[in-house]
Design a binder for these strands. Structure first.
Length: 506
RNA sequence: GGCCCGUUCGUCUAGGGGUUAGGACGUUAGAUUUUCAUUCUAGAAACAGGGGUUCGAUUCCCCUACGGGCUACCA
């Protein structure tokens, strides 16, 4: 490894929502960069105009922000190697493609998409390369004169790399070690499209070079095209500056097999995108982790451990710990099936771990979205601290916290009514009186008073606790019932007992 | 089909020539919690198969099987 400053890039194409695999790639980039005191760059790969989706770039930027993966350079903040949007760099790619043509490493091809389509249909295993290129319309098969004529007539054409014959291209992947390919097996990939835009293959090499990228992380699906990139780095004369590659294992469907896709989320009922994505064209709304109530800390944590571990039993990591401990040689080679149950577990752990203060704003909006009025932040904080251990996702706070702010709308009467007695009615009427005189209002006092009265009335405490809970909460859940009463306060507790009594004896 | 990558409990994984193959999620049973959840304890649960190499392979090598990726003027 050289002593150059580490520079990595996350290079998504703005075609829609950001897949969790994409976020993980961004995360690994980020962790590596920060650990090495390097730069993390966001580059937008929008070379396919037909797939461009309005708003997708802003969405990606917001995802990164939500996750805390702030780029040092990006289209939004700029940087010394701007522009960071490939569509805005269009003019610079042609030069390199032409250079390759003049060196004999690339050539013009005039075949129409339809002709190629036909070849693929009619010729088994058709590949634009070694075997068939001479029979197609390109500057290798045509005469110089013919080529000039076509060019002069502005005939639509692409520039293709000319894969060399009988060579073995190999490189050392930081995760996989030695990987090699036979050039005869690789086709002549298009470098520059007919519209003048580069394909990924050209753009990634040119931009990684120009932006002085030192390490390139991408999904394993890119492995087969690595030889094209390797050759390009070589032909362009930049071999010494080629970044070190790392091909990350894929994230797979939890059932069956294959890459995890947006559809799987819809089918299996869990999010695949980091944040909810709204498709303006179809009107389709694809839910995201953020909106489902995940904490970014948990999302990052679960992504980090999907394909990486630190070699110990530790599973919960803060971002700083990840930065300190991340290591490429502890990234596994095999794809990982996504497990939503475990994802939820991570979130629950983080809700427990994080301070109530951190949750306050989020919980408040969960409650307010449901029409629950939260007047006092301090009270909310006490409530959060009492109940957060029982919440897995942020929306769980609604059920667990709502009754602290408003009287139960419904009562689980079936849990008490069948066993209700006049003696119990008497107990609670008497309890109201006692509470009314109570000057100290805390859990212990309440519990003592409650139990003393129960003994006096000769009713088992257990017979009374549940009714009391239902009066305050409405259902069979929540923290210790005296804790709830303590938080609710004297007036509210008495009110709820009275109201509950009315419901139970109706 | 071709090429490339991969393969330890259901899932994520640790380990690595000699281990009772460890942890986590989930699951099962129990304890605690006079609700529910948390928490705690215990249990079931894995080295794809076949050849080598070796005194000894789950570990190293090869083959097979299986899985995945790619095979666009998409990334």
């Amino acid at each position: 490894m050289s002593d150059k400053k580490v520079r990595v890039r996350f290079a998504p194409s703005p075609t829609g929502g950001l897949h969790l695999g994409g976020v993980r790639t961004a995360l690994f980039n980020y962790l590596f960069a920060k650990q090495q005191q390097g730069d993390f760059i966001l580059r937008i790969e929008d070379t396919d105009q037909s797939r461009y989706v309005d708003g997708a770039e802003a969405y990606v930027a917001e995802c990164l922000q939500w996750c805390g993966l702030t780029p040092d350079e990006s289209p939004a903040v700029g940087g010394p190697y701007a522009p960071y949007r490939q569509s805005e760099r269009k003019s610079i790619y042609r030069e390199y493609a032409e250079k390759l043509v003049s060196q004999g490493h690339a050539y013009y091809a005039f075949d129409t998409p339809e002709e190629l389509e036909q070849n693929r249909r009619e010729i088994p295993n058709f590949q634009y390369g070694q075997v068939y290129r001479d029979g197609l319309r390109n500057s290798l098969s045509l005469t110089e004169h013919q080529v000039d004529e076509l060019l002069d007539a502005h005939t639509p054409h692409v520039i293709r790399i000319k894969m060399p014959a009988d060579e073995r291209v190999s490189f050392t992947d930081m995760i996989r070690g030695q990987v090699s390919f036979e050039t005869n097996q690789v086709d002549d990939k298009v470098l520059l499209k007919a519209d003048g835009m580069p394909t990924y293959h050209l753009a990634v090499v040119v931009d990684d070079y120009l932006m002085k990228i030192t390490h390139a992380f991408r999904g394993e699906e890119w492995l087969p095209s690595a030889p094209v990139h390797l050759l390009l780095w070589d032909y362009l004369g930049w071999k010494a500056e080629m970044p070190q590659w790392a091909h990350l294992p894929l994230i797979l469907k939890p059932d069956g097999h294959g890459k995890l896709s947006k559809r799987d989320g819809a089918r299996l009922g869990f999010p695949v995108y980091a944040m909810t994505w709204f498709d303006g064209k179809t009107g389709e709304l694809t839910p995201g982790f953020r909106e489902l109530g995940f904490l970014p800390e948990a999302f990052i944590n679960l992504l980090a451990t999907l394909g990486w571990n630190d070699g110990t039993d530790q599973e919960i990591f803060t971002i700083d710990e990840l930065i300190a401990k991340f290591s490429l040689d502890r990234v596994s080679k095999a794809g990982a099936k996504f497990d939503f149950e475990k994802a939820k577990w991570f979130n629950g752990e983080w809700i427990k771990k994080v301070k109530g203060e951190r949750l306050k704003v989020k919980v408040k909006s969960v409650l307010e979205e449901k029409g629950v009025v939260v007047s006092e932040d301090e009270y909310l904080l006490k409530v959060i601290d009492k109940i957060k251990d029982r919440c897995v996702l942020l929306p769980d706070f609604y059920q667990q916290a709502a009754y602290f702010f408003e009287q139960p709308k419904e009562y689980d009467v079936n849990a008490v009514k069948p066993k209700w007695t006049d003696a119990k009615t008497e107990f609670f009427i008497r309890f109201i009186t006692i509470l009314g005189r109570e000057e100290v209002w805390d859990e212990a006092t309440l519990e003592t008073a409650f139990k003393a009265l129960a003994e006096e009335k000769a009713i088992k405490t257990g017979e009374l606790m549940l009714p009391f809970r239902i009066m305050l909460v409405g259902g069979k859940f929540g923290p210790h019932v005296f804790d709830i009463a303590a938080l609710l306060g004297k007036v509210e507790t008495i009110t709820r007992i009275e109201k509950g009594l009315g419901v139970f004896t109706a």
